Simulated assay, not measured.
Amino acid sequence: MDKRTGKMAGTGTIVDVRMADGVIASVTPCSETPEGELPWISPGWIDLQVNGYAGFDFNAQPVDVKDVLGVTEQMNRYGVTSYLPTVITGSFERMKQAVGQIGRVCDEYASAAASIAGIHVEGPYLSREDGPRGAHPREHVREPDYDEWLQLQKESGNRIRMITVAPERQGMAEFVRRLADEGITVCIGHTAASPDQLDAAIEAGAVLSTHLGNGSHPVLARHPNYIWHQLGDDRLWASFIPDGHHLAPAVLKSMVRAKRDRFVLVTDCVALGGMPPGKYRSLVGGEVEVHANGRLSTADNPNILAGSGVTMPECVANAIRFAGLSMKETVEAITERPANVLGREDLGRLVPGAAADLTLFHTDSDGRVEVLETIVKGKTAYAVKRG
Protein backbone atom coordinates (compact mmCIF):
# COMPACT_ATOMS: atom_id res chain seq x y z
CA MET A 1 0.00 0.00 0.00
CA ASP A 2 1.44 3.35 -1.07
CA LYS A 3 1.22 6.45 1.13
CA ARG A 4 1.60 10.22 0.76
CA THR A 5 1.68 12.74 3.60
CA GLY A 6 0.80 16.40 3.21
CA LYS A 7 -1.25 19.36 4.37
CA MET A 8 -4.86 19.23 3.20
CA ALA A 9 -5.34 22.12 0.79
CA GLY A 10 -7.83 24.40 2.46
CA THR A 11 -7.54 23.27 6.07
CA GLY A 12 -3.84 22.68 6.61
CA THR A 13 -4.56 19.43 8.48
CA ILE A 14 -1.68 17.00 8.09
CA VAL A 15 -2.95 13.71 6.71
CA ASP A 16 -1.72 10.38 5.46
CA VAL A 17 -3.36 9.29 2.21
CA ARG A 18 -3.01 5.59 1.52
CA MET A 19 -3.64 4.10 -1.92
CA ALA A 20 -4.13 0.59 -3.20
CA ASP A 21 -5.24 -0.81 -6.57
CA GLY A 22 -5.74 2.63 -8.08
CA VAL A 23 -8.13 3.94 -5.42
CA ILE A 24 -7.82 5.76 -2.11
CA ALA A 25 -7.81 3.26 0.75
CA SER A 26 -7.82 5.72 3.65
CA VAL A 27 -7.32 9.36 4.63
CA THR A 28 -6.28 9.72 8.26
CA PRO A 29 -4.71 12.40 10.45
CA CYS A 30 -0.97 11.97 10.61
CA SER A 31 -0.08 10.34 13.94
CA GLU A 32 3.26 12.14 14.25
CA THR A 33 4.47 15.40 12.77
CA PRO A 34 6.98 14.69 9.99
CA GLU A 35 10.22 16.62 9.77
CA GLY A 36 10.74 19.31 7.16
CA GLU A 37 8.31 21.32 5.08
CA LEU A 38 5.28 19.39 3.90
CA PRO A 39 3.57 19.92 0.55
CA TRP A 40 -0.06 20.79 0.10
CA ILE A 41 -2.04 17.72 -0.91
CA SER A 42 -5.33 17.79 -2.78
CA PRO A 43 -7.47 15.62 -5.01
CA GLY A 44 -6.08 15.49 -8.52
CA TRP A 45 -6.83 18.62 -10.50
CA ILE A 46 -9.42 18.49 -13.28
CA ASP A 47 -9.49 20.64 -16.44
CA LEU A 48 -12.66 20.57 -18.56
CA GLN A 49 -11.21 22.49 -21.51
CA VAL A 50 -7.83 21.60 -23.04
CA ASN A 51 -7.22 22.31 -26.73
CA GLY A 52 -3.52 21.47 -26.65
CA TYR A 53 -0.25 22.70 -25.18
CA ALA A 54 3.46 23.07 -25.98
CA GLY A 55 2.98 22.41 -29.69
CA PHE A 56 0.70 19.39 -29.20
CA ASP A 57 -2.73 20.01 -30.70
CA PHE A 58 -6.15 18.35 -30.52
CA ASN A 59 -7.17 20.45 -33.52
CA ALA A 60 -4.29 19.58 -35.81
CA GLN A 61 -4.89 18.24 -39.29
CA PRO A 62 -4.57 15.39 -38.55
CA VAL A 63 -4.33 14.78 -34.81
CA ASP A 64 -1.47 12.37 -34.18
CA VAL A 65 -0.80 9.87 -31.41
CA LYS A 66 1.97 12.14 -30.19
CA ASP A 67 -0.52 15.00 -29.74
CA VAL A 68 -2.68 12.97 -27.37
CA LEU A 69 0.25 11.55 -25.41
CA GLY A 70 2.11 14.89 -25.43
CA VAL A 71 -0.80 16.88 -24.02
CA THR A 72 -1.45 14.20 -21.41
CA GLU A 73 2.17 14.37 -20.27
CA GLN A 74 2.01 18.17 -20.09
CA MET A 75 -1.23 18.11 -18.11
CA ASN A 76 0.28 15.68 -15.60
CA ARG A 77 3.36 17.89 -15.35
CA TYR A 78 1.12 20.76 -14.25
CA GLY A 79 -0.89 18.80 -11.69
CA VAL A 80 -3.87 17.83 -13.84
CA THR A 81 -4.91 14.21 -13.34
CA SER A 82 -8.15 14.29 -15.36
CA TYR A 83 -8.95 16.45 -18.36
CA LEU A 84 -11.17 16.76 -21.41
CA PRO A 85 -9.39 17.06 -24.77
CA THR A 86 -11.33 19.78 -26.56
CA VAL A 87 -12.07 19.54 -30.28
CA ILE A 88 -13.35 22.79 -31.73
CA THR A 89 -15.50 23.65 -34.73
CA GLY A 90 -14.29 22.27 -38.04
CA SER A 91 -15.36 20.18 -40.99
CA PHE A 92 -17.06 16.91 -40.15
CA GLU A 93 -14.03 15.01 -41.50
CA ARG A 94 -11.55 16.90 -39.33
CA MET A 95 -13.63 16.60 -36.17
CA LYS A 96 -14.28 12.92 -36.84
CA GLN A 97 -10.57 12.23 -37.25
CA ALA A 98 -9.73 14.12 -34.05
CA VAL A 99 -12.26 12.44 -31.75
CA GLY A 100 -11.50 9.07 -33.33
CA GLN A 101 -7.78 9.43 -32.76
CA ILE A 102 -8.27 10.44 -29.14
CA GLY A 103 -10.48 7.39 -28.60
CA ARG A 104 -8.00 5.03 -30.26
CA VAL A 105 -5.09 6.34 -28.19
CA CYS A 106 -7.13 5.78 -25.02
CA ASP A 107 -7.73 2.20 -26.16
CA GLU A 108 -4.02 1.60 -26.74
CA TYR A 109 -2.24 3.63 -24.05
CA ALA A 110 -3.06 3.25 -20.37
CA SER A 111 -1.50 6.62 -19.51
CA ALA A 112 -3.93 8.44 -21.80
CA ALA A 113 -6.95 6.45 -20.66
CA ALA A 114 -6.12 7.14 -17.01
CA SER A 115 -6.15 10.93 -17.43
CA ILE A 116 -8.67 11.52 -20.23
CA ALA A 117 -12.08 11.69 -18.57
CA GLY A 118 -13.89 12.23 -21.86
CA ILE A 119 -13.88 14.53 -24.86
CA HIS A 120 -15.28 18.07 -24.98
CA VAL A 121 -16.64 19.07 -28.39
CA GLU A 122 -16.77 22.88 -28.52
CA GLY A 123 -18.97 23.47 -31.53
CA PRO A 124 -19.68 23.26 -34.38
CA TYR A 125 -23.22 24.41 -33.51
CA LEU A 126 -22.24 27.93 -32.47
CA SER A 127 -23.00 31.55 -33.34
CA ARG A 128 -21.94 32.85 -36.76
CA GLU A 129 -21.60 36.41 -35.48
CA ASP A 130 -18.19 38.02 -35.11
CA GLY A 131 -17.39 38.24 -31.41
CA PRO A 132 -19.59 35.44 -30.11
CA ARG A 133 -18.02 33.12 -32.69
CA GLY A 134 -14.59 33.90 -31.23
CA ALA A 135 -11.79 32.10 -33.09
CA HIS A 136 -14.03 29.35 -34.44
CA PRO A 137 -13.93 29.26 -38.28
CA ARG A 138 -17.06 30.86 -39.72
CA GLU A 139 -17.23 28.48 -42.68
CA HIS A 140 -17.75 25.50 -40.38
CA VAL A 141 -20.27 26.72 -37.80
CA ARG A 142 -23.65 25.16 -38.56
CA GLU A 143 -27.09 24.14 -37.34
CA PRO A 144 -27.35 21.20 -34.91
CA ASP A 145 -27.36 17.84 -36.65
CA TYR A 146 -28.21 14.85 -34.47
CA ASP A 147 -27.10 12.31 -37.10
CA GLU A 148 -23.72 14.03 -37.32
CA TRP A 149 -23.51 13.97 -33.51
CA LEU A 150 -24.18 10.22 -33.47
CA GLN A 151 -21.41 9.62 -36.00
CA LEU A 152 -18.90 11.67 -34.01
CA GLN A 153 -19.87 9.90 -30.79
CA LYS A 154 -19.54 6.48 -32.41
CA GLU A 155 -16.13 7.38 -33.89
CA SER A 156 -14.91 8.52 -30.47
CA GLY A 157 -15.82 5.19 -28.90
CA ASN A 158 -18.59 6.95 -26.95
CA ARG A 159 -16.03 9.14 -25.21
CA ILE A 160 -17.61 12.54 -25.90
CA ARG A 161 -18.87 13.65 -22.48
CA MET A 162 -19.35 17.40 -23.00
CA ILE A 163 -20.51 19.69 -25.81
CA THR A 164 -20.73 23.48 -26.07
CA VAL A 165 -23.57 24.90 -28.19
CA ALA A 166 -25.27 28.22 -28.96
CA PRO A 167 -28.96 28.16 -27.93
CA GLU A 168 -30.06 30.41 -30.82
CA ARG A 169 -29.33 27.79 -33.47
CA GLN A 170 -32.43 26.34 -35.09
CA GLY A 171 -33.87 23.38 -33.21
CA MET A 172 -31.32 23.67 -30.44
CA ALA A 173 -33.66 23.12 -27.49
CA GLU A 174 -34.68 19.70 -28.78
CA PHE A 175 -31.04 18.87 -29.59
CA VAL A 176 -30.01 19.79 -26.04
CA ARG A 177 -32.82 17.67 -24.60
CA ARG A 178 -31.77 14.59 -26.56
CA LEU A 179 -28.11 14.88 -25.53
CA ALA A 180 -28.94 15.61 -21.90
CA ASP A 181 -31.10 12.49 -21.86
CA GLU A 182 -28.03 10.57 -23.06
CA GLY A 183 -26.02 11.80 -20.08
CA ILE A 184 -23.98 14.36 -22.00
CA THR A 185 -22.96 17.54 -20.16
CA VAL A 186 -24.40 20.27 -22.41
CA CYS A 187 -22.86 23.72 -22.12
CA ILE A 188 -23.77 27.16 -23.45
CA GLY A 189 -21.06 29.17 -25.16
CA HIS A 190 -20.06 31.27 -28.17
CA THR A 191 -23.59 32.58 -28.20
CA ALA A 192 -25.59 35.76 -28.74
CA ALA A 193 -28.82 34.13 -27.56
CA SER A 194 -31.84 36.02 -26.29
CA PRO A 195 -33.13 35.47 -22.75
CA ASP A 196 -35.91 33.23 -24.09
CA GLN A 197 -33.42 31.15 -26.10
CA LEU A 198 -31.13 30.79 -23.09
CA ASP A 199 -34.02 29.75 -20.86
CA ALA A 200 -35.17 27.18 -23.42
CA ALA A 201 -31.72 25.58 -23.49
CA ILE A 202 -31.45 25.52 -19.70
CA GLU A 203 -34.90 24.01 -19.32
CA ALA A 204 -33.92 21.38 -21.91
CA GLY A 205 -30.89 20.36 -19.84
CA ALA A 206 -27.93 22.71 -20.41
CA VAL A 207 -25.95 22.96 -17.17
CA LEU A 208 -22.81 25.08 -17.66
CA SER A 209 -21.69 28.31 -19.32
CA THR A 210 -18.43 27.74 -21.20
CA HIS A 211 -15.77 30.41 -20.33
CA LEU A 212 -18.48 32.89 -19.36
CA GLY A 213 -17.62 36.48 -20.28
CA ASN A 214 -15.73 35.42 -23.38
CA GLY A 215 -16.86 34.41 -26.85
CA SER A 216 -19.01 37.54 -26.92
CA HIS A 217 -19.37 40.89 -28.70
CA PRO A 218 -16.63 43.37 -27.71
CA VAL A 219 -19.40 45.93 -27.04
CA LEU A 220 -22.70 44.94 -25.41
CA ALA A 221 -25.80 46.67 -24.12
CA ARG A 222 -25.34 47.32 -20.43
CA HIS A 223 -28.42 45.20 -19.66
CA PRO A 224 -30.02 42.94 -20.43
CA ASN A 225 -27.46 40.85 -22.25
CA TYR A 226 -26.52 37.19 -22.53
CA ILE A 227 -23.61 37.43 -20.08
CA TRP A 228 -25.69 38.92 -17.27
CA HIS A 229 -28.49 36.43 -17.94
CA GLN A 230 -26.20 33.41 -17.56
CA LEU A 231 -24.34 34.93 -14.63
CA GLY A 232 -27.55 35.44 -12.72
CA ASP A 233 -29.13 32.07 -13.46
CA ASP A 234 -28.54 29.76 -10.50
CA ARG A 235 -29.39 26.72 -12.62
CA LEU A 236 -26.13 27.16 -14.54
CA TRP A 237 -22.60 26.40 -13.51
CA ALA A 238 -19.98 28.64 -15.14
CA SER A 239 -16.39 28.05 -16.15
CA PHE A 240 -13.88 30.89 -15.99
CA ILE A 241 -10.37 31.27 -17.42
CA PRO A 242 -8.23 33.02 -14.77
CA ASP A 243 -5.30 33.91 -17.02
CA GLY A 244 -5.57 37.69 -16.55
CA HIS A 245 -6.45 38.16 -20.23
CA HIS A 246 -9.82 36.51 -20.80
CA LEU A 247 -11.26 38.29 -17.77
CA ALA A 248 -9.77 41.35 -16.11
CA PRO A 249 -9.04 40.68 -12.43
CA ALA A 250 -11.92 42.87 -11.23
CA VAL A 251 -14.32 41.11 -13.61
CA LEU A 252 -13.19 37.65 -12.47
CA LYS A 253 -13.63 38.74 -8.85
CA SER A 254 -17.15 40.01 -9.51
CA MET A 255 -18.19 36.94 -11.48
CA VAL A 256 -16.99 34.35 -8.97
CA ARG A 257 -18.78 36.25 -6.23
CA ALA A 258 -21.99 36.20 -8.27
CA LYS A 259 -21.73 32.47 -8.98
CA ARG A 260 -20.65 31.65 -5.42
CA ASP A 261 -20.10 27.87 -5.29
CA ARG A 262 -21.27 27.15 -8.86
CA PHE A 263 -18.15 27.97 -10.84
CA VAL A 264 -15.17 25.97 -12.06
CA LEU A 265 -11.79 27.08 -13.36
CA VAL A 266 -10.38 25.93 -16.71
CA THR A 267 -7.23 26.74 -18.64
CA ASP A 268 -8.67 26.64 -22.20
CA CYS A 269 -5.01 26.18 -23.13
CA VAL A 270 -4.10 25.72 -26.78
CA ALA A 271 -1.15 24.28 -28.69
CA LEU A 272 0.59 27.68 -28.74
CA GLY A 273 0.64 27.81 -24.94
CA GLY A 274 4.20 27.84 -23.70
CA MET A 275 5.58 28.89 -27.11
CA PRO A 276 7.91 31.91 -27.63
CA PRO A 277 6.33 35.25 -28.59
CA GLY A 278 5.63 35.68 -32.30
CA LYS A 279 3.07 35.01 -35.01
CA TYR A 280 1.94 31.48 -35.81
CA ARG A 281 -0.57 29.74 -38.04
CA SER A 282 -3.22 27.87 -36.07
CA LEU A 283 -6.61 26.31 -36.69
CA VAL A 284 -7.75 28.11 -33.55
CA GLY A 285 -7.79 31.67 -34.86
CA GLY A 286 -5.90 31.35 -38.15
CA GLU A 287 -2.90 33.69 -37.83
CA VAL A 288 -2.33 34.01 -34.09
CA GLU A 289 0.05 36.23 -32.19
CA VAL A 290 1.64 35.08 -28.97
CA HIS A 291 2.39 38.24 -27.02
CA ALA A 292 5.26 38.66 -24.58
CA ASN A 293 2.81 38.72 -21.65
CA GLY A 294 1.38 35.34 -22.65
CA ARG A 295 -1.79 36.69 -24.28
CA LEU A 296 -2.90 34.84 -27.43
CA SER A 297 -4.95 36.81 -29.95
CA THR A 298 -5.86 36.73 -33.61
CA ALA A 299 -3.21 38.71 -35.49
CA ASP A 300 -5.69 40.89 -37.38
CA ASN A 301 -7.78 41.76 -34.30
CA PRO A 302 -5.98 41.82 -30.95
CA ASN A 303 -9.35 42.10 -29.20
CA ILE A 304 -10.28 38.56 -30.25
CA LEU A 305 -8.56 35.95 -28.11
CA ALA A 306 -7.42 32.62 -29.57
CA GLY A 307 -7.40 30.44 -26.48
CA SER A 308 -5.00 30.74 -23.58
CA GLY A 309 -1.46 29.76 -22.73
CA VAL A 310 -2.02 29.41 -19.00
CA THR A 311 -1.26 26.32 -16.91
CA MET A 312 -3.32 25.08 -13.98
CA PRO A 313 -0.77 26.15 -11.32
CA GLU A 314 -0.99 29.67 -12.77
CA CYS A 315 -4.80 29.43 -12.62
CA VAL A 316 -4.59 28.56 -8.93
CA ALA A 317 -2.23 31.44 -8.19
CA ASN A 318 -4.26 33.92 -10.26
CA ALA A 319 -7.61 32.93 -8.74
CA ILE A 320 -6.25 33.56 -5.26
CA ARG A 321 -4.49 36.80 -6.24
CA PHE A 322 -7.06 38.30 -8.63
CA ALA A 323 -10.36 37.15 -7.16
CA GLY A 324 -9.45 36.93 -3.48
CA LEU A 325 -10.43 33.27 -3.33
CA SER A 326 -9.24 31.08 -0.49
CA MET A 327 -7.10 28.04 -1.14
CA LYS A 328 -10.11 25.89 -0.26
CA GLU A 329 -12.42 27.57 -2.79
CA THR A 330 -9.78 27.51 -5.50
CA VAL A 331 -8.97 23.83 -5.08
CA GLU A 332 -12.67 22.93 -5.02
CA ALA A 333 -13.08 24.79 -8.32
CA ILE A 334 -10.57 22.47 -10.00
CA THR A 335 -11.44 19.21 -8.23
CA GLU A 336 -14.82 18.44 -6.68
CA ARG A 337 -16.87 20.97 -8.66
CA PRO A 338 -15.77 19.93 -12.17
CA ALA A 339 -16.23 16.32 -11.09
CA ASN A 340 -19.80 17.23 -10.11
CA VAL A 341 -20.38 18.90 -13.49
CA LEU A 342 -19.34 15.63 -15.16
CA GLY A 343 -21.35 13.51 -12.73
CA ARG A 344 -18.18 11.73 -11.58
CA GLU A 345 -18.34 10.98 -7.87
CA ASP A 346 -15.12 8.96 -8.15
CA LEU A 347 -13.07 12.04 -9.08
CA GLY A 348 -12.10 15.24 -7.27
CA ARG A 349 -12.34 13.89 -3.74
CA LEU A 350 -9.95 12.67 -1.05
CA VAL A 351 -12.19 9.93 0.32
CA PRO A 352 -11.86 6.15 0.50
CA GLY A 353 -13.02 4.51 -2.71
CA ALA A 354 -12.36 7.53 -4.92
CA ALA A 355 -9.74 7.35 -7.65
CA ALA A 356 -6.21 7.62 -6.29
CA ASP A 357 -5.60 10.90 -8.12
CA LEU A 358 -3.50 13.31 -6.07
CA THR A 359 -1.75 16.61 -6.69
CA LEU A 360 1.03 17.60 -4.29
CA PHE A 361 2.22 21.18 -4.60
CA HIS A 362 4.08 24.05 -2.98
CA THR A 363 3.29 27.75 -2.73
CA ASP A 364 5.96 30.38 -2.18
CA SER A 365 5.82 33.75 -0.44
CA ASP A 366 4.86 35.48 -3.70
CA GLY A 367 1.90 33.18 -4.25
CA ARG A 368 3.47 31.14 -7.04
CA VAL A 369 2.41 27.51 -7.23
CA GLU A 370 4.75 24.64 -8.10
CA VAL A 371 3.56 21.09 -8.64
CA LEU A 372 5.80 18.59 -6.86
CA GLU A 373 4.08 15.33 -7.75
CA THR A 374 1.09 14.20 -9.77
CA ILE A 375 -0.39 10.78 -9.01
CA VAL A 376 -2.87 9.26 -11.45
CA LYS A 377 -4.79 6.15 -10.40
CA GLY A 378 -2.17 5.42 -7.75
CA LYS A 379 0.87 5.81 -10.03
CA THR A 380 3.28 8.73 -10.17
CA ALA A 381 2.78 10.46 -13.52
CA TYR A 382 5.09 13.38 -12.74
CA ALA A 383 7.50 14.28 -9.96
CA VAL A 384 10.00 17.10 -9.53
CA LYS A 385 13.53 15.83 -9.71
CA ARG A 386 15.44 16.94 -6.66
CA GLY A 387 19.20 17.23 -6.39
Rank of each mutant, 00 (worst) to 15 (best):
L296S: 10
E129T: 09
H190T: 10
W237A: 06
G285K: 01
G131H: 10
V176K: 08
D107I: 00
E289I: 14
R222I: 00
V165I: 13
I14H: 03
G309T: 13
G100Y: 01
Y53C: 09
E345S: 14
E139M: 12
I227Y: 07
Y125L: 04
T185P: 01
E37Q: 14
Y78D: 08
G55C: 07
R4F: 13
R281Q: 14
N303T: 10
H211F: 03
A114N: 13
Q151E: 13
M95W: 02
I241E: 11
M75C: 11
V87G: 02
S216K: 11
A60N: 12
E345R: 12
S127A: 12
Q170K: 15
A339K: 07
P43Q: 05
E287I: 08
P29L: 03
R344I: 08
S31V: 08
H120W: 04
V80N: 03
G286H: 09
E345P: 02
A98H: 09
R386W: 00
K279P: 00
P167A: 13
P62G: 03
M312D: 10
D243C: 07
S282C: 12
T363D: 00
A166T: 11
R368P: 00
D130E: 12
C315I: 08
T28D: 11
P302E: 15
R260H: 08
V15Q: 08
S31Q: 14
P302M: 06
A193D: 04
C269D: 02
A292K: 11
D2A: 07
V68Q: 07
D181I: 01
Y78P: 00
V105I: 07
D181G: 15
A98K: 04
G90Y: 02
G273T: 08
N293Y: 02
G12A: 12
W237M: 13
C269E: 03
I188D: 13
E73R: 11
S282V: 04
V80E: 02
P249M: 05
I202H: 11
C269K: 02
T335G: 09
Q101W: 00
E336D: 08
E329F: 01
I116W: 03
L247M: 13
E168R: 06
V50H: 10
G44I: 03
I241G: 06
G232P: 00
A206E: 09
R178H: 13
C30G: 00
A201K: 12
K379T: 11
E336M: 07
V270R: 04
R235F: 11
N293A: 03
S254C: 10
K259E: 05
F240M: 14
D145N: 14
S365F: 05
V207D: 02
D199E: 15
V17A: 10
D300S: 15
V99T: 04
S326F: 10
P242A: 15
V284H: 08
P29S: 02
L283R: 12
E32V: 04
A114P: 00
V316C: 11
K253P: 00
G118D: 06
L265E: 03
G307F: 08
M162P: 03
L247H: 08
L208K: 11
